[in-house]
Design a protein around this nucleic acid. Structure first.
Lengths: 238, 238
DNA sequence: GACAAATGCGAGCGCTCGCTCGCATTCTTG
DNA sequence: CAAGAATGCGAGCGAGCGCTCGCATTTGTC
């Protein structure tokens, strides 16, 4: 019983360890072309998923979009689901970085309007730059793994919002705080859809401003004691 | 050239004229069983669409859900799209009735909090009772016809909201009014998702209340002159 | 009861999809 | 350069899909 072929389907090459360390002199032979192909395929997959959704996107279409044959696609990904998972993980990673910067402790010390800017702006920017993210996460036809990780992200984001609420309204009971956090996040998602639907330019900017006004008016009355910024400032009313 | 067979695919029987009037003594022979089958098939389709979405739902699955053979299904519907269209039209019709009652002139004369109750409650109730509606309309994989009609409904709902805004804030410029109307509606949709996700009972009711609070806090500052109800009443604060 | 229309069935057609396989090509290593 | 691994190709496979067809059954009308 000789060792069988190392791997017909080498899974997706993890982007780690690009430098050949001494203990791993031969991770893979032709890394450069392969990595390029993977990136190319993921970009193509992002485009196709974005315009057709996960299920409606055919692997042949992804291969065609990447100017590659179906066989080549399946050299780097064991199946269609793995494409979505790898793409989703990369996007989730970027997203975590973005919202990691958004919820820093120093931002938490800001007054509410500035905090809203600091949190909302990066989120919107990320979703504008990566429309495939929402297409993959929001679609109900995404593979189970993606849905799980999206749920995890959702839970951690809710926790962050609850933290902020705890800071601005410490006397609020936990149950209500959880409810307000969910409502705040749902409102942001709804507004995000609107922002993405608006054409880039002044209209989109106005919509972003409107979303911030909405969130501010909702959250400002919750702040206690001497208001951090004053009640419901008519930031940019008519 | 003799008259060919009346219709291999009789399209879906319109629900009108169940009583045989004198000028139409023979519209169709066996109406009762057929109508029952159609309703049964549409109910089954609603279930399957609801849990799988349009594209992922197979006609065989719909037939199975209705305890009927595929052939029977295709006796009443020319194709899969027609099932979704008929179902969508019936749901849209009910929806139009519901929001027609919601936006009556007398409701428009109510102060803002009561108006919110009058508009939000029927909408939520309808979507709770007909989860297939959102599944069909919100999914990006719906057939083109459905998307068109949903767009039409969306436009008319936005117009209603703009009317309300014009009533409460007549001095607001049209462009901003349109933006606020879109934001209000998007917020409602986001909150609706949350309400539907919550388990029926007190949690859902609390979520509905929270959504109303959110909308009230957003819209109340827009009212001009002597406030109709007072500013941002802490309706059910902690 | 006789007849026809309406209704019901389910095997199976044609098609597309995800995916495979054998083989050609390119690159790295010794 | 020779050897072999990594990469690239595309016709074609099984499976599931939407949908059809021929035929059996039920039901209303005479």
């Amino acid at each position: 019983m000789s060792e069988d072929v190392p791997e017909d389907v080498p899974e997706v090459a993890s982007e780690a360890t690009p430098e050949p360390t001494s203990d791993e002199p031969k991770p893979r032979r032709r890394q450069a072309r392969g990595e390029r192909r993977i990136a190319q395929l993921l970009q193509a997959a992002a485009n196709v998923f974005c315009s057709n959704g996960y299920t409606a996107a055919s692997t042949n279409a992804i291969a065609r979009e990447a100017h590659v044959s179906p066989g080549t696609l399946y050299q780097y990904f064991p199946n269609k689901e793995a494409i979505a998972i790898e793409l989703g993980e990369r996007l989730l990673h970027q997203m975590r970085e973005a919202h990691g910067q958004a919820f820093t402790p120093e931002n938490l010390a800001l007054p509410l309007p500035e905090l809203l800017d600091a949190v909302v702006d990066p989120m919107i920017e990320f979703n504008c730059a990566n429309p495939a993210f929402l297409a993959l996460m929001h679609g109900s036809d995404a593979p189970g793994r993606i849905a799980e990780e999206h749920d995890a992200l959702h839970v951690s984001l809710l926790a962050r919002v609850r933290e902020v609420l705890a800071h601005f309204a410490p006397a609020m009971p936990a149950q209500e705080r959880a409810r307000v956090a969910e409502m705040t996040f749902a409102t942001f998602k709804g507004g995000l859809d609107l922002v993405l639907a608006a054409p880039e330019g002044p209209e989109r900017d106005a919509m972003i401003g409107e979303l911030k006004t909405l969130l501010l008016r909702y959250l400002a009355p919750l702040t206690e004691g001497p208001l951090t910024e004053g009640p419901v400032t008519t930031t940019r009313s008519h």
